[in-house]
């Protein structure tokens, strides 16, 4: 966050790119991402989930933006599909950074892999640097763990959107919020129950009972109109009332779109 420096300075003083490097300063590896993309994401996106995208133009071609989506599935494929959609469909393909829980940094294996494929710990300072200084796209799931924990019977019913922290982050960084409604992930790997004992034993965030492979549900990703949080004033992020109102509005918008999309869907598998 580096107070004392203005935005221009903070951008100018960012470390220069070293082309010989294999990972970015965030620990992201193009090599591993590319490998995963060619072997898995490409197949999932085009063949398995047959993703259909609407409103891709709502993602800005330049500058930072905070993407907010619903979240679900035991091993959620939604983030990868949203990232892939931006790379495939957008006129200027851009990388997407995904905020993840601090848990991943502390668990062996995940700690190695998650940053390499674009995961960044959900710390306000990280989001601020990515959005404002580096002007990147950041995806956040405000439901967090509560989204992936929820059972199949609760599908497409949004959980609480945290404490509105994501709105505050966007306001402080001066970037718009792009809400996303995604249908299909709930059926791709539904969670039927949670085994608490197993969760305790493994130290993982949850231990769900679910299919071991993704089911071929039809994916629809709808990017909604950007919410201009950056136009709400310098100190908007300190206005708790405003932050909560905006957070609730965004949640309601996504929920409404989800009902609309599920309503129009004739088949879980064929759309």
């Amino acid at each position: 966050m580096t107070p004392g420096l203005d935005v221009e300075q903070r951008r100018d003083l960012l470390p220069a790119l070293e082309p010989e490097r294999r990972v970015t300063d965030w620990g992201r590896s193009e090599r591993i991402e590319g490998l995963l993309d060619r072997t898995l994401y490409d197949f999932l996106y085009h063949v398995w989930f047959r993703c259909e995208v609407e409103g891709i133009e709502n993602i800005p071609s330049e500058g930072g933006a905070l993407l907010v989506s619903n979240h679900s599935g035991a091993l959620p494929p939604d983030a990868a599909m949203i990232a892939k959609a931006i790379m495939e469909e957008h006129s200027t393909p851009r990388p997407l950074h995904l905020t993840v829980e601090h848990f991943f940094k502390g668990y062996p294996g995940f700690s190695m892999l998650v940053p390499k494929i674009g995961g960044v710990a959900a710390h306000p300072a990280n989001a601020q640097r990515l959005l404002q200084d580096e002007q990147q796209l950041v995806l956040v799931f405000p439901e967090g763990r509560k989204g992936t924990e929820k059972l199949y019977k609760d599908r497409y019913r949004l959980r609480r959107f945290g404490r509105g922290g994501f709105v505050r982050t966007a306001m402080r960084a001066g970037v718009p919020i792009v809400p996303i409604a995604l249908v299909g992930a709930e059926e791709a790997m539904p969670v039927f129950a949670q085994i608490n004992v197993l969760q305790k034993l493994t130290g993982l965030i949850y231990a769900p009972v679910s299919p071991l492979v993704y089911l071929p549900a039809k994916f629809r990703i709808r990017f909604l109109e950007p919410v201009p949080t950056h136009e709400m004033g310098e100190d908007a992020h300190e206005d708790r009332g405003l932050v909560q109102t905006v957070a609730q509005d965004i949640r309601a918008d996504i929920q409404e779109e989800l009902f609309d999309m599920v309503g129009k869907r004739e088949s879980v598998w064929f759309g």
Partner: peptide, 12 residues
Amino acid sequence: EQDDPAFFSEEM
């Protein structure tokens, strides 16, 4: 720590 920011700045 596990819950560190990716970049520490001086006032943190």
